Amino acid sequence: MKAAVIHSPGVITCDTVDDPMIKESHDIILKVTSTAICGSDLHMYSGGIPQARPMVMGHEFMGIVEEVGQHITNLKVGDRVVVPFPISCGTCFFCQHDLPTACERSNPEHYGPEGGILTDKGGALFGYSDLYGGYDGGQAQYVRVPYAHIGPRKVPENLTDEQVLFLTDIFPTGYTGVMWGELKGGETVAIFGAGPVGSMAAKSAILYNAKKVIVIDTQQYRLDKIKALTGCDTILWEDADHAVQQIRDMTDGRGADLCIEAVGFEPDRDFIDRAKAVLNFEKGSIKVLGSLYECCKTWRNCFCSWCVSC
Rank of each mutant, 00 (worst) to 15 (best):
M1S: 08
A3M: 13
A3Q: 08
V5L: 14
I6R: 03
H7V: 00
H7E: 13
S8T: 02
V11A: 11
V11I: 06
T13W: 13
T16D: 12
D19N: 15
D19Y: 12
D19K: 04
I22V: 08
S25G: 01
S25M: 07
D27P: 03
I29D: 05
V32G: 01
S40C: 09
S46C: 06
S46M: 12
I49V: 11
P54Q: 11
M55A: 00
V56H: 00
M62E: 04
I64T: 07
E66W: 01
E67W: 12
K76M: 09
V77C: 00
D79L: 12
V82F: 09
V83Y: 13
V83A: 12
G90E: 00
T101Q: 15
S106V: 02
G112C: 05
D120K: 09
K121F: 11
K121E: 06
F126Q: 01
Y128N: 13
Q141N: 12
Y147I: 04
H149M: 10
I150E: 03
G151D: 09
R153C: 10
V155I: 11
P156L: 06
E157I: 06
E157D: 06
Q163G: 00
V164C: 15
F171P: 01
G174V: 15
M179R: 11
L183P: 00
E187D: 08
T188V: 06
I191R: 12
A194N: 09
V197Y: 08
M200D: 02
M200R: 06
A202V: 05
A202N: 07
A205Y: 00
I206D: 10
I214M: 15
Q219R: 14
Y221G: 00
Y221D: 08
D224N: 12
D224T: 03
G231A: 02
G231F: 06
D233I: 03
E238D: 00
D239L: 09
H242Y: 14
V244H: 04
V244D: 06
Q245A: 10
R248F: 07
R248M: 13
R254T: 09
A256D: 10
D257K: 05
C259D: 01
A262C: 11
V263E: 02
V263A: 05
G264D: 01
F265P: 04
E266M: 15
D268W: 14
D268V: 14
D268F: 14
D268M: 08
D270W: 04
R274G: 10
A275Q: 13
L279G: 02
F281L: 13
F281G: 03
E282G: 03
V288I: 05
Y293I: 15
Y293S: 15
E294C: 08
E294P: 01
C296S: 05
T298F: 05
R300M: 05
F303M: 12
S305D: 01
S309T: 11
S309L: 11
